[in-house]
Design a protein around this nucleic acid. Structure first.
Lengths: 222, 222
DNA sequence: TAGATTGTTAATCGATTAACAATC
DNA sequence: TAGATTGTTAATCGATTAACAATC
């Protein structure tokens, strides 16, 4: 009965499928084959069918996949209808931007409170979310389940706050601090947004391309 | 002479090595073996040696790696000393946060200008960066090379602005729009920061864990 | 020199792709 | 029914791990 462990690569493709299906839906497409989906996404049809078959049989021979139905299956696999509760710790620039702009609801999460230490923000509301002093953190765990914490505090306290969150029983941390957290993956799920890692990878590919172009130019000049 | 194509997986590990080496340096460690590095990062020593050997011979038998030297090699591979020039398009919440907080210089990039359409921000300065009207975009390409553009405009114009940037000759786009850009990878390097993809993957792992715990509890109760 | 650890070749493992019978 | 396309098994490809000679 238990489904075999699904590889991380497959999981990381699911949100892309979701986005593409939403796009197709918006364009009025209501069925699609793995072949056509592959063409549009730059994947093989085999890979797409393998990916979906990790979770069930969502298609129909001779027909393909129903866009709305498949979208709903993937949404469910990703937990989008579970209504996870979220707190945010660290209302700096990025924390504030997330509170004001990120549509947690759209992905099955809802933000219930935020925390900071600076007196000038504690006690205020941002987009309807109350900012509490971080010393009040334990209260929220007494009154609600907290599934996930957005961690957007300064680097130097990242690990200490993460430790605290885990000890209070948070189940997952969405880590924006650009620090590798020293918490065991047995006790908490950590998902990192490492801006700098992303930029550095871009830097590598950019360097590679610039060098290739310079080489090509040098060759031409000869 | 030409180095074999290095896999994306290896490239994505380089920034992690960099961060770890910086941490070791800060802690006063000046040499490390692949074995110890692996222990600290959760990788095998084999993988670490394989990764580095894609780029050269950075270690010494019987000794290991010099932390400072290895750090410098990786920084150079990632193009951190190339001084790439950057423009930012879309000074909304996230764009503003990047201008104010993200330390481009630290990674070998420098921000030269930003663009928006809203009259209330055009003409102002944010952290020393002038915000121009987007209609002025072509000027910067006439007077400077522009290696990379940070794309942080609203979703619905993302592709149109990306097209424009590519036509002006930008070499890479750091894409914060959560939209899959329809530009060919022959003409431009695209590096995506998809917040929602990251959150949805977290949602998957969180769902999985919650279900596993519920199952364990049900089993215990029996 | 002896011990440690690299760089690299070979073996294993896992992920992607191809092929095809089942079936809508 | 015939054509299309799935779900799945087998083949291939690539990435990780193991092993070890080279050497500091």
């Amino acid at each position: 009965m238990k489904q075999a462990k699904v590889s991380n690569n497959v999981i990381r493709r699911l949100p892309r499928y979701l986005r593409k299906l939403d796009e197709l839906k918006a364009a009025g497409v209501d069925r699609i084959s793995s072949g056509e989906l592959g063409r549009q996404m730059g994947l093989t049809s085999s890979q797409i069918r393998q990916d979906f078959s990790c979770f069930g049989e969502f298609g129909q021979q001779g027909y393909g996949y129903n866009v709305t139905g498949l979208r709903a299956e993937i949404a469910s696999i990703l937990g989008m209808n579970r209504d996870f509760s979220v707190i945010l710790v660290g209302v700096g620039n990025i924390g504030r931007a997330m509170i004001e702009n990120f549509c947690f609801e759209q992905y099955g999460f809802h933000l219930i409170a935020a925390y900071d230490v600076r007196p000038e923000v504690v006690g205020t509301d941002i987009s309807g979310i109350r900012i509490h002093d971080i010393s009040e953190l334990h209260h929220v765990f007494e009154t609600s389940k907290v599934d996930m914490a957005v961690l957007s505090v300064p680097k130097h306290i990242a690990n200490q706050v993460a430790r605290d969150l885990v000890d209070h029983g948070v189940k997952a941390i969405w880590n924006f601090t650009n620090v590798e957290l020293n918490v065991s993956e047995n006790e908490v799920i950590v998902e990192n947004i490492h801006f700098s890692d992303s930029l550095l990878a871009l830097g590598y590919y950019l360097s590679e391309r610039i060098d290739a172009e310079a080489n090509a130019a040098a060759k031409n000049a000869k």
